Simulated assay, not measured.
Amino acid sequence: MSASVEPVVKLTSLSRGAGCACKLPLAKLESMFASLGANLDSADGDLLVGALEGDDAAVYRLDDERAIILTTDFFTPIVDDAYDWGRIAAANALSDVYAMGGRPLIAVNLAAWPGSDLPMDQLADVLRGGASVAEEAGCLVVGGHTIDDPIPKYGMAVVGLAHPDRLFQIDALAPGDNLVLTKAVGTGVISTAIKNGSAKDTWIAAAIASMTSLNADASTVASEMGVRAATDVTGFGLLGHLHRMARASGAAAEIDASAVPVLPGAREVVAAGFVPGGTRANTEHLSDVVHLDEDVPADLAVLLHDAQTSGGLLLGVPAGVDVAGVVRKLTERNLPAAHVGRVTEGAPGHVSVRAESRS
């Protein structure tokens, strides 16, 4: 339990926009990065993954056995408990290392805090929450940087380590691969309901448990089973991240909507109208590349686009690997993993959503 004092102002009330840790809209980010051109990455044969690949983190080869992974992530509050927000933000930042097939080694805090509006004791709770998750991951937190800002923000910059030949990358899908998701979706809509005081305690608890759960076990199982294509599901939603993977890999994909795990309360809050702006932006941006069958329930369609915070890993399991065995190994580690679709031939980046599996 957190030892935080009762907030003078709810943390989420100081967040701008909807109540999720949404990235900038995918369309705007892609347009901006395209304008930067080839000068974005310096030419270096040891830079295995850089900004141009659009992957989860940068990777630089040190030698034949080691590559370092560098990533950062931070966002405004999505829950009102400072300690829990710190835990969520840390798990979210560490996730990019796991999504590349690595393990986190060292991190620094990144914080913005309205010192005149919120007590410093709450910032201390945020940092303690982040440190607790980093400790669970075996990652050292060695300081950081804090600025005064009217909108509180928190996250981490993280350095990890991986083997250069065993990286996960978004462009490594192939037709015939099966798609496995390791966490339930719905954190965006539930966070929005929290901000509006309309989420049940049990829903909040389930969402926090999901967002503070590390993707370490999922990454380990995936590596052991020969997975080489993966990403973590965050601000662009399940369909947005799958679209990016499929496009980068020159393939198409299918999702079985009924197979996708959903957090408790997520469908209820969608029905009540608590849909974050990031989720709506995802839906609009993907309208030309995502085809939903008419019998896909409307609330489930929203959740497939829902902007996530600290979501699970989306894995491309090679065709020759027993996908049921992969799911079984993940569920044995108490992960709500599911076989949610497959990679197909077709227009690169196109995603078809079926109400139920046709295979």
Score class of each variant (00 low, 15 high):
69 I>G: 13
51 A>W: 02
26 L>T: 07
21 A>E: 07
45 G>P: 04
55 D>R: 08
17 G>D: 10
58 A>V: 08
40 L>C: 05
37 G>W: 04
51 A>I: 14
45 G>S: 07
41 D>I: 12
38 A>C: 03
41 D>H: 00
23 K>T: 15
43 A>Y: 14
15 S>L: 05
61 R>C: 11
41 D>G: 05
69 I>T: 03
44 D>K: 10
35 S>I: 04
53 E>H: 11
40 L>R: 09
46 D>A: 14
27 A>R: 11
30 E>Q: 03
47 L>H: 01
59 V>K: 08
30 E>D: 05
35 S>G: 12
63 D>M: 12
69 I>A: 03
30 E>L: 13
27 A>V: 02
61 R>K: 09
43 A>W: 07
53 E>C: 14
57 A>Q: 05
62 L>W: 08
68 I>P: 05
30 E>G: 02
25 P>D: 08
39 N>C: 06
24 L>M: 01
52 L>I: 12
69 I>M: 06
24 L>H: 02
47 L>M: 05
34 A>G: 09
29 L>F: 07
54 G>P: 05
36 L>A: 06
41 D>S: 04
28 K>F: 01
67 A>C: 04
15 S>D: 03
43 A>N: 09
16 R>T: 14
15 S>H: 02
38 A>Q: 06
28 K>S: 14
37 G>C: 00
54 G>I: 14
37 G>S: 00
38 A>I: 02
58 A>K: 15
69 I>E: 03
15 S>A: 15
21 A>M: 14
17 G>Y: 09
46 D>T: 07
35 S>D: 01
25 P>M: 10
16 R>K: 07
27 A>I: 03
51 A>F: 03
45 G>R: 08
55 D>G: 14
65 E>G: 12
55 D>K: 15
56 D>K: 11
62 L>Q: 01
34 A>Q: 14
56 D>P: 08
15 S>M: 04
54 G>A: 14
16 R>D: 10
35 S>T: 07
56 D>I: 09
43 A>R: 07
63 D>P: 11
64 D>P: 15
63 D>Q: 15
45 G>Q: 01
30 E>M: 08
66 R>T: 14
42 S>A: 10
56 D>E: 13
29 L>V: 15
51 A>R: 06
26 L>V: 03
44 D>G: 10
53 E>P: 09
24 L>G: 03
